[in-house]
Amino acid sequence: MRFSGFSHLIVQIANWIMKFSLINLLWVIINGPFAVITIIMLSTGSFMEMLVPLTLLMILTAFLLFPSTTALFAITREWIMESEQSSLLKRYWALIRENYRTSFRAGSVYAFIWAVWFLDYQYLSSVNDLLGMILIIAGILLFVNTVVFFCFHSHYRMPMKKLFSNSLLVTLGSPVMLLGTIVLGTSFVYFTARFPVVFIFFTGSVFAYLSFYLFFRYTLSVNRRTA
């Protein structure tokens, strides 16, 4: 009996590892061009040389990064909600297609905001250390807001303006979401830097899963308080 239970646990763990690694690998492949151009941009020597790759990154953010990442959050949401999935790959592609228009529009907005932040940081951090620190804090808040937007977009059916406004309200109004997302993001950056192979197989999918789980628990607590 104990051996049977242990064997079942091993099968479950192997199944979860396969699910996370398969979806993460597909997400990495889709965003391969984004990663390559990011490396090219960061290796350039001058401010002006960054403009062309930065423009390409803005385009890829709208066309590839946001639709594929929204689908990544949506599929991990289904794991948490214990929704049935006949085929992992087919479901992932279906989620990309279902949310593509909204994800593209949102990606265009966030790509512009992130580009403005990046250019401001590159310029102002070299002029004044205090301004550089302020922009780092702004970048952290923008990162949390982007993650919260993915959670909202994958969980609710709302107009675009409502998604943006709710994401901003939760980012600024929930210390749990703010600090939790920062801790998760920092941890994953650290482990990815130490073990780059983790990025290929687990970083995106596990981060999406844990971020949405944190968001889902937060929404449940809000619903209980307002009930």
Score class of each variant (00 low, 15 high):
Arg2Thr: 11
Ser4Trp: 09
Ser4Gly: 10
Ser4Leu: 12
Ser7Val: 09
His8Thr: 12
Val11Thr: 12
Val11Ala: 12
Val11Ile: 11
Ile13Met: 10
Met18Arg: 09
Phe20Trp: 05
Phe20Val: 10
Ser21His: 05
Ser21Leu: 03
Leu22His: 02
Leu26Val: 15
Trp27Ser: 10
Val28Thr: 11
Val28Cys: 03
Ile30Met: 04
Pro33Tyr: 04
Phe34Pro: 01
Phe34Ala: 13
Ile37His: 03
Met41Gln: 12
Thr44Lys: 14
Ser46Pro: 03
Phe47Met: 10
Leu54Tyr: 00
Leu54Asn: 04
Leu56Pro: 04
Leu57Glu: 01
Ile59Tyr: 10
Leu60Asn: 06
Leu60Cys: 07
Phe63Pro: 03
Leu64Tyr: 09
Phe66Met: 13
Leu72Tyr: 00
Phe73Tyr: 15
Arg77Asn: 13
Arg77Leu: 07
Arg77Val: 02
Glu78Thr: 09
Glu78Arg: 15
Ile80Glu: 01
Glu84Phe: 11
Ser86Pro: 00
Leu88Phe: 03
Leu89Lys: 02
Lys90Thr: 08
Arg97Gly: 03
Glu98Ser: 13
Tyr100Glu: 00
Tyr100Asn: 04
Thr102Asp: 11
Ser103Tyr: 00
Ser108Met: 14
Ser108Gln: 07
Ser108Tyr: 07
Ala111Thr: 00
Ala111Asp: 01
Trp114Pro: 00
Trp114Phe: 13
Val116Trp: 04
Trp117Glu: 05
Tyr121Glu: 03
Tyr123Gly: 03
Val127Phe: 08
Asn128Arg: 07
Asp129Lys: 09
Gly132Arg: 00
Ile134Trp: 11
Leu135His: 03
Ile136Thr: 08
Ile136Met: 09
Ile137Tyr: 08
Gly139Pro: 03
Ile140Pro: 01
Phe143Asn: 10
Val144Ala: 02
Thr146Glu: 09
Phe150Met: 10
Ser154His: 02
Ser154Ile: 02
Ser154Asn: 01
Arg157Phe: 08
Met158Asp: 12
Met160Phe: 15
Met160Asp: 08
Lys162Gly: 11
Leu163Pro: 02
Gly173Arg: 04
Val176Asp: 07
Leu178Asp: 05
Ile182Glu: 05
Ile182Leu: 10
Leu184Ile: 11
Gly185Asp: 08
Gly185Ala: 06
Gly185His: 02
Val189Trp: 11
Ala193Trp: 11
Ala193Asn: 12
Phe195Trp: 15
Phe195Ala: 10
Val198Arg: 06
Phe201Lys: 04
Phe201Pro: 06
Thr203Val: 08
Val206Thr: 14
Phe207Val: 02
Phe207Thr: 06
Phe215Leu: 00
Phe215Cys: 02
Phe215Ser: 00
Ser221Gly: 04
Ser221Leu: 12
Arg224Ser: 12
Arg225Thr: 09
Arg225Leu: 15
Ala227Gly: 15
